[in-house]
Design a protein around this nucleic acid. Structure first.
Length: 451
DNA sequence: TGGTATATAAACAGAA
DNA sequence: CTTCTGTTTATATACC
């Protein structure tokens, strides 16, 4: 059963209110700006759900086929639960109060208090004395996911964390040890052997084990994103009233019954995506500009191009794997991403190597129209020199070939994938637009709507 | 009360 | 030799 719509207020006005509230929570953030742009645009069918088609779509409701996407994307759910009703500047605008509180209560001289007040929205660029509410696993995950090829050397993981979470710039040095410790012990992370002659310095590249990626996504989803959590609590303080979106024909997911970070709902999905976007793209660019290991500014054209390609690549991986990758909705925290997690992903579809799951750097013919990548490979070679040669094409995902879950004919699957990938391209544009990066198509669309 | 997740510290080996 | 990287062990804390 889908949320009922209240048509008293248009989506446009809903957007406007959301933009206002987000702007107060994250002043100047890319998300706020992006939402502002979106709100200025005419409602466009192509832009129904920018997030659902993004690489962060996996943060959404468990990757099931959602037929009623527009129910989630129209933002009407905000209205349904009166989420915006209680949004007032005093509620979410913590610029002064939280900082004061952060300074007075959570900072004792040069002491760094590891805790962040749960009622204060966390801003990594501002609350530099509060430890980020992300586990090291999540930090590493975000860093790797934010890299163009989804693999990073330890040094760049450090850099990413430092760039996005200035807390660590003055934090005790043990955090790097913790990062390495996590990389070693956490099964979610895998080393990637360097190609011969690759010059990235010491050590290996680290990537996300595809089998455990859903677990990390879920862990990220469970992270207490204070601003939205707060809004949710304001709007819907009754745990038993929490609505769980269930697609047609699907039985309800066995979600954790208590209300809070573990609760998965369309609300949280979009909230998580929004917050993750802000964290990854918006806030990281404030203050000290985020830079990759080769010193490239994340706002540069080259990086935008990488980002665009990355979104497509991520989505391609997602499409390829979505038919075979088990949907992970765990009730038990131990099933999330523990050090000693059993390899559920190997059931029926063992991934013998990372490269079989990820097409690192491989050109995807489906996106050949995005061909303005002249600087791509040369740029990437500095960091990721082990891009497979086009002629040594990686074996197609044998997961798909072997999976018993794929029961449709190859023709129909191809049709579906083509349709899916069409959505991907649109979604990638939408996501980039959300992140404050205008693409050709989105700018054209914007121009069209304003002319 | 025990199990689990996570953080932190430390020791150590090996590579660059 | 130094620094960095990666592994392992141990301990502490919080949560369920």
């Amino acid at each position: 059963m889908a949320p009922t719509r209240n048509s008293d207020e248009s989506d446009a006005s809903m957007r406007e209110r959301l933009v206002n509230s987000l702007s107060q929570s994250f002043p100047g953030s890319a998300l706020s700006k992006a939402l502002s742009c979106m709100s200025a645009e005419d409602s466009d069918d192509d832009m129904k759900d920018p997030l659902s088609s993004s690489c962060f779509a996996e943060l959404r409701l468990d990757k099931v086929d959602i037929e009623d996407d527009d129910e989630l994307t129209s933002l009407s759910w905000l209205q349904d639960n009166d989420l915006l009703k209680n949004i007032k500047p005093s509620d979410v605008d913590d610029d002064d109060d939280s900082q004061k509180e952060n300074d007075n209560i959570h900072r004792d001289g040069n002491h760094f208090n590891p805790t962040h007040p749960p009622h204060v929205p966390y801003n990594p660029q501002k609350h530099i004395h509060s430890k980020p509410p992300y586990s090291f696993s999540c930090l590493i995950f975000m860093a790797v996911e934010d890299s163009p090829h989804k693999k990073l050397p330890v040094k760049d993981i450090y850099s990413w964390i430092l760039n996005h979470f200035p807390y660590f710039q003055n934090a005790p040095t043990g955090w790097k040890n913790s990062v390495r410790h996590n990389l070693s012990l956490n099964k979610c992370f895998k080393k990637v052997d360097k190609d011969r002659g690759q010059s990235i310095g010491k050590g290996s590249l680290w990537c996300i084990d595809p089998d455990y990626r859903p677990n990390l996504l879920q862990a990220l989803r469970k992270t207490p994103y204070h601003p939205y959590h707060q809004l949710q609590m304001l709007a819907n303080p009754q745990p038993t009233q929490q609505y769980h979106y269930v697609p047609n024909g699907m039985r309800p997911m066995p979600l954790t019954p208590r209300f809070g970070p573990n609760t998965i709902s369309p609300h949280r999905d979009i909230q998580d995506v929004a917050h993750t976007l802000v964290s990854l793209k918006g806030l990281g660019s404030r203050g000290s500009p985020a830079r990759s290991s080769d010193g490239e500014d994340y706002a540069s054209n080259s990086y935008r191009m990488r980002l665009k390609r990355k979104q497509m690549q991520l989505k391609t991986d997602f499409v390829k794997r979505r038919h075979t990758e088990p949907i992970v909705v765990t009730e038990v925290p131990s099933e999330d991403h523990t050090y000693s997690l059993t390899n559920f992903g190997n059931i029926g579809s063992p991934a013998s190597s990372i490269d079989e799951e990820y097409d690192f750097g491989e050109e995807d013919d489906n996106f050949s129209e995005c061909s303005d990548m002249s600087d791509w490979d040369s740029d990437m070679d500095e960091v990721d020199g082990d891009i497979p040669d086009k002629h040594t094409k990686i074996t197609p995902h044998k997961n798909i070939q072997n999976s018993s879950m794929v029961k449709m004919t190859s023709r129909k699957r191809k049709e579906m994938e083509e349709e899916e990938q069409k959505k991907i391209v649109e979604g990638a544009d939408a996501l980039l637009n959300l992140a404050g990066i205008m693409t050709n198509s989105s700018s054209l669309k914007s121009n069209r709507s304003h002319s």
